[in-house]
Design a protein around this nucleic acid. Sequence first.
DNA 1: TTGTACGCGTTATCAC
DNA 2: GTGATAACGCGTACAA
Lengths: 328, 328
Amino acid sequence: MSISQKRLAETLGVSVATVSRVLNGKENVSPETRARVESLLRDSQYSPDLLARSLKTRRTHTIGILVPDITEVFFGAVIKSAVRFLETAGYDTLLCDSDENIRRERAYLDSLAGKRVEGILIASLGGECDDVRGTFGKTIGCGIPIVQIDNYVTTDCGAVLIENRRAGAMGIRHLYERGCRNIAVIAGSTREYTGRERLAGCREEAAKLGLELRVREGDFKERSGYDAMRSLLGEQPRPDAVFIHSSKMSYGAVAALRDAGLRYPDDLLVLTFDIRDVYGTCQPTLSSVVQPEAKIGALAAENLLAALDGEPARTVFLEPELLLRESC
Amino acid sequence: MSISQKRLAETLGVSVATVSRVLNGKENVSPETRARVESLLRDSQYSPDLLARSLKTRRTHTIGILVPDITEVFFGAVIKSAVRFLETAGYDTLLCDSDENIRRERAYLDSLAGKRVEGILIASLGGECDDVRGTFGKTIGCGIPIVQIDNYVTTDCGAVLIENRRAGAMGIRHLYERGCRNIAVIAGSTREYTGRERLAGCREEAAKLGLELRVREGDFKERSGYDAMRSLLGEQPRPDAVFIHSSKMSYGAVAALRDAGLRYPDDLLVLTFDIRDVYGTCQPTLSSVVQPEAKIGALAAENLLAALDGEPARTVFLEPELLLRESC
DNA sequence: TTGTACGCGTTATCAC
DNA sequence: GTGATAACGCGTACAA
């Protein structure tokens, strides 16, 4: 238990109002009393009760950030960027990891609302549309602005994300230009927006180029990437390129490739997603479609703060980038 | 703004007390009134004000977790484990990333105290001892129990961590047994406990074995690992083994090795820290001294909850483990 | 310059 | 079974 203003006031023989004034740096307090209060403030372990303060001022200066997996490198970068931006703007952050669990996502959404955050940045797991509308609906109904990142599940609030179809198309086009005509895709879950869109982009581009696409669907995690690649390698003819739609699935897929005794880019080309791997830990180095994480985080935060000022939150689509290394 | 109990009560023609009773599932309320309240509760977007509730009940059921870098794989695993444990025990979590910044660590510590968390799990950056005592002192003075993880900076509160000296000794011993007599160490910052202890363990074991140790000090991050390895390779004779004390430094060091045209384990053996790399992304696979992350997280959380019940928080040292793969 | 009093949304105590 | 009402810690309008 920390001491309260009331107690401070009692021991000092002044009123709580005076203590409060000193704490908030108000002008109308005499230098002597101010000095006395500040002196006591230093050695008595006073810690202002932010809950009570927020209750009174009706402001928390707090933004919630909710992602499916905090250990995903992409999310880590986005979060750090957003948190720095918000910190500069004087906002505190509440970080939540739903662990890819839609129930937990909802629980966190309720919890954040209960904590009276002033806005939320969310990479939702997004189910069916009406379902989602229901989930976000309650939060928005409480007057809490939301900005989506990564996953775009509803038009009811703003979003900052890449043009995922373009990312898919970009990958297929590149592999085609490298001479591949027998391309396989390991897609993320099509129950999620990013999974669907990236795959749709691939299909569109393939259709334009007159290509057949072999598709496997995973869940964005290592294991599903491993299994999908294994399954693809069991087919004849073997694909001449594989485009994998998440970083973790890519690592799994590369392991499956190696376990099958195959090598990239010799036996087939490999194109990944969200892998920068600056230090070339994975050899040969992996080419990848990457997102501007820092820009996404900062822009989403900026967008959200604008929404707090009443502006309708915008939806911004950024350009994905093709990071070419050795794998294709 | 979400609706309040008062408003609900008004529209229903009952008192706030009744609404509160229904919300808290108290028995003494008639079935009919309960039904009426619950009905209204459903379509009016009521979200209980957790701030007000905590202010009144003087409980937040919230634990703060503060680490230097949320993207570090080790911390990610510890956090997830701790959060799950706390969730099961009915506790909420406030996640903070100090970004290796001691000033930010202190700011978060104050902020968490202000938010009236009931306990804190911290992997501190830990400076000089008195300094630290000052930092934690205020928090502990407020009656908030702390349990340290990873870094052990003060005896004033409990801790859950590995026997870091043993981890260092274990690594040197293993490399010695593999025939190495010219071992180099890339240590973490000796201004941090883990950096100091791991290095001390190495030195002790080396002394026992009659070995000279070549030591470089880094800051746990990739770049410093790269630079340290480069510097080591510039020396004659070249070391026959390198023991690197963090995962990120290891990736940097491996890159430097490769850039120098050398290979492990042929040209020299490599032993890393905190790298599990289940899918063998880095080839040849890296041997590593690893920590039981899940156990650390759960045990630390359990320890902290016990401290909330008045038990003095214990300090627990766990065994590091040697994960042997191909690199040594 | 300083103090008194009120209210933020809850829960809990006490009457009825 | 239900309704006033006090209190949690804080900021502030109003009085003094």
